[in-house]
Amino acid sequence: MSVSTIAEFIAVLLMLIGAIMALISAIGIIRFPDIYTRSHAATKSSTLAVLLTLLGAFLYFATTTGFVSVRLILGIVFVFITSPVAGHLITRAAYRANVKLADTTIEDELADVLKEKQQKEGK
């Protein structure tokens, strides 16, 4: 087996794992009970899915055609930075809009902190 065949195999494997990861993420969005656990499934695993797929595409083009795509590297860095922040902003907005947590939740530490802060500002 030549080097390019092995690299192609690794690229295909990365893209397959990425696709499976995206499927797992989609199942998680459907099956989890409230917005916070759903965003947990939506941000982490789909970010990893996109990263693996882009890395596979980058590796494929770099080994078979010798074309090093700077755009794919920039895309990997960009998605890795921005997608968790998008998830953070969505959950933050949901919490500020008083979206209820799931019934199985046993502890909400942020509620105590926010209540304390509101009392301080009230004075």
Binding site: L74, V77, F78, I81, T82, V85
Partner: peptide, 8 residues
């Protein structure tokens, strides 16, 4: 994050 992302 916006400070970094703007440059990209």
């Amino acid at each position: 994050v916006a400070r970094v992302v703007v440059y990209i």
